[in-house]
Each structure stands twice: as C-alpha cells, then as structure tokens.
C-alpha cells in the first residue's frame, strides 16, 4: 500500500495539541486575558480594602443575592464566590468568546490558515485541535480566576465556612466542593458562548467579528430573558439557566435547573460546533 505522503507525515500527528497551545500561548491576547484573571481578584480585594468599609450600618440587608456582596469579605471561599459572581455575567463570557472566537478567524486573517491546510492538516483535525485548545484556555482562565480569588481571599480573610443568608453555613471542605461544582457548571453553560464564537470564527475572517458577535448574541439572549412576557419561550434561550449555579449555594443543593441548564448548553454547543465542522470541512478557503 502506497500512502504516498512525505516521510514522517501522518495526518493524526499534524498540528499537535502542544504546538497549538504554544501557538496561542505566544499571543499577547492570551497572556493578557489570563493575566487579567489573576489581576481581577487582586483589584477586587484592593477595592474592598480601600473602598470605605464603614457604611455597613446604613445599607439595608437585601436579598440573598446582594448578600453575596455583604459576605464577600467573610472568608476565602466567599471571596472566590464573589469574584465568580461578578464575572459570570460578562467577563467570563467575553473570555470564552475570545478564546473560541479568535482561534480560527485570526489564522484566516493572518493568511496562515491556508498554509496549515496545505501541510495538510486535515480540516476536521484542525478544528478539533483548535477547539480543544480554545476550551482548555477558557477553562484555565475560569480556574485561574477562582483559584486566585480563593488564594488571596483566604490569605486576607481567612479560611472560613461558605456563608449565605438563606442556607446554613457550609463547612469549608464542602464549600470547596460547591465552588468546584459552580466552576463546572459555569464551564458547561459558557460552552454555548464558546460554541457560538467558534462557529462565527469559522464563518468569518474577522476575529473581532466572531468574538463580538458571540458576545452580542449572548447579551441579546440575556435581554430577551428579562422580558417575562415571552413566557416559556425564555426557557429555550441559551442564557436562561446561566444563573442556576446559585442553586449550589442552598442546602440541600437545587439541582433541577443545573441539569436543565447543562442540557440546554450542551445541545446548543453541539449544534454550533456541528455546524462549524460541517461548514469548515466543506468550504472554500479563500483567505
């Protein structure tokens, strides 16, 4: 059997994941995004330290959700949770969209995509490697944020139970598990953003368009979700269950919305990625 390829060439060895990780690691935007994930908890910590802590008496104690703010300085776990809570709505969305949306489109805009395809890296493999690495970077960003929050929070405020006003305090050991659960859920829910950004990344040569488009659609979905008049249609919106991780804070944990949210996210992500693969393996690369 003559394979006919060059010596040492095997399609399954092209674009090794390590090579793609290195390709992305050398980029300034990767370094900045990951760096900011470390920086944000520090900024929040400084804000809590210097931002006038004496007005607690005036402030009304609000709902359990504003209690996340009140409790943020009660311990490392709560601080990490606060960092996640403030980032989940937008920052993490942007980060996921950035890593997934930029990956193919930027190669296309540099013109290096056609050289990768001419190596040839099989198209499906190229996408798979790009996707895996983009997701890996996204997850690393997520864990960096939580990890840094936990670390600096614990150093500054100590190792205390995870508090919330409705449920009983959660002992630290279990609190860590809950925090991991929250991270896992956020990672799953944000797959929708990653999926959408990745699809757009395949469809366009403009990296900014892919990232911005995904964030824009996510925001649009969030806005529609606020309109209660839409009724049960809202359940189908990709952002509908994005806050369900809060169910992990009560005792016993509320898992129904977590499961629904995960189902919704996986369905959306599979559809988006499926479309991306379908499109990319058939399209004429003209850039």
């Amino acid at each position: 059997m003559t394979v006919g390829s060059a010596v040492g060439y095997r399609p399954s060895r092209t674009l090794p994941i390590r090579a793609e990780i290195r390709r992305q690691a050398s980029r300034r935007r990767t370094q900045l995004a990951l760096g900011f994930m470390v920086l944000l908890p520090l900024i929040i910590l400084l804000a809590f330290e210097f931002g006038g802590g004496g007005d607690d008496d005036d402030r009304n104690r609000g709902t359990a959700f504003s209690s996340l703010v009140d409790l943020a300085t009660s311990g490392g776990l709560n601080f990490a949770l606060f960092c996640l809570a403030v980032s989940a709505g937008f920052l993490l969305v942007v980060v996921f969209a950035l890593f997934a949306g930029d990956t193919v489109a930027s190669e296309a805009s540099w013109g290096s995509l056609r050289y990768l395809l001419a190596i040839p890296v099989p198209r499906a493999r190229l996408l798979a490697v790009k996707l895996v690495v983009a997701l890996a970077y996204s997850f690393v960003a997520l864990f960096l944020l939580a990890g840094t929050g936990l670390l600096v929070g614990t150093l500054r405020y100590g190792w205390h139970p995870l508090g919330s006003t409705i449920a009983a305090q959660i002992p630290p050991g279990q609190g860590v598990l809950r925090l991991l659960g929250i991270l896992a859920y956020l990672a799953v829910v944000l797959l929708v953003v990653a999926g959408l950004a990745f699809l757009l990344s395949v469809l366009t040569d403009a990296a900014l368009g892919a990232v911005g488009g995904a964030v824009l659609l996510w925001i649009l979905s969030s806005i529609l979700d606020q309109i209660t008049a839409l009724g049960s249609i809202r359940n189908a919106l990709p952002t509908h269950y994005s806050d369900a991780w809060m169910g992990l804070l009560s005792t016993p944990i509320q898992t129904e919305d977590l499961a629904k949210g995960a189902i919704s996210a996986i369905v959306y992500a599979v559809v988006f990625w499926g479309s991306a693969f379908f499109r990319f393996t058939r399209k004429d690369v003209t850039s």
């Binding site: 394979v3 006919g4 390829s5 399609p11 540099w110 013109g111 190596i119 040839p120």
Partner: peptide
Amino acid sequence: PGAQILSRVGALVEGPGFLPHLTGRQNLRA
C-alpha cells in the same frame, strides 16, 4: 482537500501568511 499527498508539496499561495507576533525563525519553527 486535505489529501495526504499534499505533504510532498511546498507552497506559497496568495502571499505570505505568518503569525505576526512571532519572529521569522519562530514562524518557520511553528
């Protein structure tokens, strides 16, 4: 598209395409 025989072909099509943040040497290496 993607035929393995392409591995025996070297190409310059439609101008160069490099990762702008890498040096020339790093680009070839990548």
